[in-house]
Nucleic acid binder design. Structure first.
Lengths: 205, 205, 205, 205
DNA sequence: TATGAATGAGAGTTCATTCAT
DNA sequence: AATGAATGAACTCTCATTCAT
C-alpha cells in the first residue's frame, strides 16, 4: 500500500487555465502560510480558500511540502524583483552610500510589507533543509552580483566576497531593527547612518 | 482545545523531588527539540525519555507550549552563562578588539555546539510571539550590559545604544557564517577580522 | 455511490474502432491487475496506459468492477483456448494417462506463465461472488466436456461427474505444487506420477 | 514527516486488561473481515464495533495490516485446534480410512462454519505474501505431523512427503466441494468415498 | 465522441490532552 | 502524587466517478 519507489503523476500545467489554477494555489497558500503559519494551515483550508477541491490540489502538487517550496520560490522571486534594480549598474565609491541607503530602504520595506511572510519563511528555512537551500541560492546570487558591481566600480578586490557577505548581513540586521524592534522611530535614521558608515568603511579598505 | 479563560491547576513544585522532575522534563525536551524539532517531538516521547508518565507532565505544564517556553528559558540561561564573563568589566578602547574576538569566539562556539538547538529555537522565535519575547529580553539585557561596560570605559556616548545593537548584530552575523555557511575554513579569520574592524570603527567614533 | 436501481447508459460498441478501444481497456487492465493487483490499480492508470481518457472508460464500463469482470472473462477465454485441444476427442483407458499428463503440463504452464494473474484472479473469485460465478461456469464446462469424452471412451459411468470433479481438483492441486510451492524441482515428476495414478485409479473403477 | 527508519512504540500488553482488549480487537476484526472483507473494513469501524476509540487501536497495532496478520494467526490457531486430535496417534493401514473420513468431516465443518472467513483469508493469502507464509507454515506443520504418524504406522516411506501433500490437497478439494459447490447434498457421500479411496490408494502403494 | 480537470467522501494514522485507577 | 491507557478530532492524501468543454 505504500507505493514505494513509484512516482505519482503530477500535472505539469501548460494551458492557461491550469497555470492560473496553480498560481491560485500558490497565492492562497502564501496568504495562509503568512497569516497562520505553514504547520497550522491544512490542505483542506488551502483548497477551500482557493475555491477548489482538496483532490485537485494533489494533481498539481505531490504533497503539502511541495506547495511550500513553490510558495517560498514565489516569495523569493518577489524579493528578486525588488532588489534587481540595485544590482545592475557598477558601483563607484561615490555612489556606494546611496546604494546602501536604497538597499536599506528596500530591505526594510520588503520586510515590513510582508512581515508575517518574512518571519514564517525565514523560520522555515531554519527548520527545513530544502527551504534553506532556496534562500541560500538567492543570497548567493545577490552577493555575487554585488561583487561584480563593485569590481566594475574599481573597489579593492582583496577578500571582496567576505566583505560583501558581511555588509549584506549588516544591512539585513539594520533593516531588521527597523521592522521587528520596538526602537523609537526617531532612532531609525541613526541606525541607517551607522550601517551605511560601517559598510562604506568595510568596502573602502 | 485551548480552554481559554479557564485555569487548570498546575503544580508549582517546591519539594526537591518535584523540582528535579521538572528539570528532567526540560532537559529531555531540550534534547529532543534540538535533535528532532519541536513539532516532530510528541509528549509521549518526552515522558518516556524522561522516565515519567505522560500524565504527570500535565501536572507540571499546562500544555506542550509551556514546556517549550521553559526549554527556551533554559537555553537562554545557558547563553547567559557563556556571555556573562564578557559583560562584567569595563571596556577600554585598548581592550575592545580583544573583547570582540572573545565575543566572536564564544558566539561561534555556542552556535556550533548547539547548532541544532540554535536553529530550532531561533526559528521558533520567529514563529511564536512569546518565544520571541524571551530572546528579545535576553538580547536587551546583553546590550544594556555592554552599553554599561562601554560607558565605564569612556567610549563616546552618542547614540551608544544603536551602535551597540548594530555591533551585536554584526557579531551574530559573523559567527553565523562560521557555523552555517559553507565558507572555506581558511576564510573564517578574514571574516572575523572584518567584523572586528567594523565594530571597532563603529564604537570608536 | 452505487446508484442502485438507476441505469446509466453504457455504450455497447459495434463499430470496429469502439470494439478495439474496449479490448484495449481490457488488455491494459489485465496487465495492470496481474502485476499490481486489482485494488492497487486505479482507473486513471488504466486509462493512461491504454492511451485514452478516464472519462471514456466510463462510457464503456459502468464502474471499475465491470472492467474486472471483463478482464476475468478474457483470462478465462485464454484458459479455454489452452484446454480446448484436450477436450475434443474421446478418451480411452489407454489414452487416459497421456491425457492426464498433458493436462498437468498445460495447467502448470498456464499457472506459471500467468502466475500473477492466476493468483490475483483466483483470490478475487473468493472475494467477489460474480467473479466466482465466472470461474464456476468455466470449470463446469470443462468438466462436462471431460465427462462427455470419457463416456464416449467407454469409461464406467457410475458417479462419473463426481469422479471427474475430483480428478480435476487433483490435477489443479498437483500443478499448483509445481508452481507455487518451493518443492525441489526433482520432486515434480514424482508428484505428477502420483497424480496420474490417482486419476487413473479413480476413473478406472 | 515520514518517520523513515523510526519505529513506533507498540504496546506489548502484559496485563490482563490489555490482553483482553487486544483480543477484543482481533475478535472484532475477525468478524468484520469475514463478513465485509478486509479491504472494505476500515479502522474506525473496527474501533467502534470493539467499543474503543480509533486511537487506541494504534497503540496495539502498528497498522491495519498487522491486525490482519493477528486475525489470520487467530484463524489458523483455531484450525490447529480442530485438526490436532487427528495428528497425534500413529496411523495403520486399517485405521487410515477412518482417519481420512474424520479429516474430510472436520475440514468440511471448518470451512462451513467459517465459510466467509475461510474464503477471505485464503484469498488474502494469495494477495499478500506474509499472509501466504502463515498458511504455508500451518500446512507444512500438518503435513509433517501426518508423515510422522504414517511412518510410525509402518506405511511405505518412498516419496512419502509428496504423497501426503497430494492427499492433503485431495481432501481439501473434496471438502471444498461440500462447502462451496452447489452439488446435491445426496452426492456428497459419493465424493467423500472417492476421496477416501484415492487417498488410501496413494498412501498404500 | 472524447477529454482530463475536478470532485469530495473516505481512508489510515497521529497526538495533545484527559481521566479512571 | 502518579500512571499510562484511552480519547477523538484533525491531519494528509487517494481515487472512483462526474461533467464542463
Amino acid at each position: 500500500m505504500k507505493n514505494i519507489g513509484e512516482h505519482k503523476a503530477v500535472r505539469v500545467p501548460k494551458q492557461a487555465r491550469s497555470i492560473a489554477k496553480k498560481q491560485k494555489i500558490v497565492a492562497t497558500s502564501y496568504r495562509l502560510f503568512s497569516s497562520k503559519g505553514y504547520y497550522r494551515t491544512n490542505t483542506a483550508e488551502i483548497a477551500k480558500e482557493a475555491g477548489i477541491s482538496t483532490g485537485i490540489v494533489y494533481s498539481y502538487y505531490q504533497d503539502k511540502k511541495q506547495i511550500l517550496l513553490d510558495v517560498v520560490k514565489y516569495y523569493i522571486s518577489s524579493l528578486e524583483k525588488r532588489f534587481e534594480p540595485l544590482l545592475v549598474s557598477p558601483v563607484t565609491p561615490r555612489s556606494l552610500p546611496s546604494l546602501v541607503r536604497r538597499f536599506l530602504k528596500i530591505s526594510a520595506e520588503s520586510q515590513t510589507e510582508n512581515r508575517e511572510a518574512h518571519n514564517e519563511f525565514v523560520a522555515l528555512s531554519l527548520l527545513e533543509e530544502d527551504i534553506h537551500a532556496l534562500f541560500d541560492d538567492f543570497e548567493d546570487s545577490v552577493i555575487a552580483k554585488l561583487c561584480d558591481s563593485l569590481k566594475r566600480g574599481a573597489f579593492p578586490q582583496e577578500n571582496l566576497l567576505e566583505k560583501v557577505r558581511l555588509c549584506y548581513g549588516i544591512i539585513e540586521q539594520a533593516s531588521h531593527f527597523s521592522v521587528q524592534r520596538k526602537i523609537a522611530k526617531s532612532e531609525l535614521p541613526v541606525m541607517d547612518s551607522l550601517a551605511e558608515e560601517a559598510v562604506v568603511g568595510i568596502l573602502g579598505k
